[in-house]
Nucleic acid binder design. Sequence first.
DNA 1: AATTTAAATGAAAACCATTTCTACTTAATC
DNA 2: GATTAAGTAGAAATGGTTTTCATTTAAATT
Lengths: 142, 142
Amino acid sequence: MLNDFPLTLKKLNLKVTPKRLAILEILLKESVYLSPEEIWKKMKKRFNRIGLPTVYRNLEELSEGNIISKINHPNRQLYYYLCQNRSHHHHFICLSCRKVEDISFCAAKEIEGEVKRNIRGKILSHILQVNGLCKNCLEKKG
Amino acid sequence: MLNDFPLTLKKLNLKVTPKRLAILEILLKESVYLSPEEIWKKMKKRFNRIGLPTVYRNLEELSEGNIISKINHPNRQLYYYLCQNRSHHHHFICLSCRKVEDISFCAAKEIEGEVKRNIRGKILSHILQVNGLCKNCLEKKG
DNA sequence: AATTTAAATGAAAACCATTTCTACTTAATC
DNA sequence: GATTAAGTAGAAATGGTTTTCATTTAAATT
Ligand SMILES: [Zn+2]
Ligand SMILES: [Zn+2]
Ligand SMILES: [Zn+2]
Ligand SMILES: [Zn+2]
């Protein structure tokens, strides 16, 4: 279930193409967030012909379908991460080695309450992300 | 204190220039987030010569100095907002009319605990933002 | 008030990550 | 296998943002 990618794609009404599967496989193998170009470079090892726009398109679609997460990086470039944890949660990202770790705490409930009570608007999405240095990177510096 | 901009700039070791003051004044007047180009257009009404890079540079510096907030927008463009609330808090942003409203709830404490306990890393920053439709925009649609 | 110095600025150009376009290919359905 | 809508490659365009560098300005120092 966790990585029956063909099924996952079908559920999103996306065709099961070798390139889509490869993008997911590449991301699954990584414990760090990757840029579209980095994923493209890895794809070039598997396919003779593979365009960068294909990688961008697919990453956007997969992100739209909540299969992969978009990372909010201070340098404002795009990064993606495939998390095997399928329940709602957020991320701690290492700004040095790019490692991604799960944060189970989510303020969604409390915030929903506050938005209902005071703002009286409709929530469409929320971002919660912690940026820092992971254990390994901290120890290297010390 | 709240808008003694010259003093604020001095504290950041930034020179008190008419253009910096104007950028702050423009932002202070707005209850919505603005793009650098939008701010530049407003600046052109006040100055004969005003370059877009100057606006970008100053916005970045002011954001770095925590005088203004950078907005995380789904379209990935830069937007800034000057919030008069000087205590730590986060924002609800309307994706339709761009209104920004304060959310006092912040999960920082809980997250800090979780990062200390499980991740054992160092937190450098955190993002918490709620995107949605404000009360006014909801009612317009209904 | 004049001098000095580092910071700020404008204009033009560069940058470059991302998107668009078009012709071609492929997956899925029957 | 034929059909059709979706996916793709490659090249080019896009456009928000940053860099460069010569000039100007703020503000500290005489
Ligand atoms: Zn790390
Ligand atoms: Zn995760
Ligand atoms: Zn609104
Ligand atoms: Zn605020």
